[in-house]
């Protein structure tokens, strides 16, 4: 890499942090909501019937 490697790597790092952070936040939000639905004994709408294919 030439002399501007710092700028190039910084921009890829910034994108990785922002988009990767959003992916992680989205996945953990989904898992949290699903867990709460589970605790209330509610199957998420549109999911398979209880017991089948619930948790992978």
């Amino acid at each position: 890499m030439s002399n501007h490697a710092a700028f190039i790597l910084a921009s890829y790092l910034a994108a990785f942090v922002i988009l990767g952070g959003l992916v992680i936040a989205s996945l953990s939000a989904r898992n949290r909501v699903r867990r709460e639905l589970d605790q209330r004994g509610l199957a998420p709408r549109g999911s398979a019937p209880r017991g089948v294919d619930r948790k992978r």
Partner: peptide, 16 residues
């Protein structure tokens, strides 16, 4: 991917 995943979460959240 992100929009589908988050929409699904919103549907569940609204139900909750």
């Amino acid at each position: 991917f992100l929009v589908l995943l988050r929409t699904e979460t919103e549907i569940d959240r609204r139900r909750l």
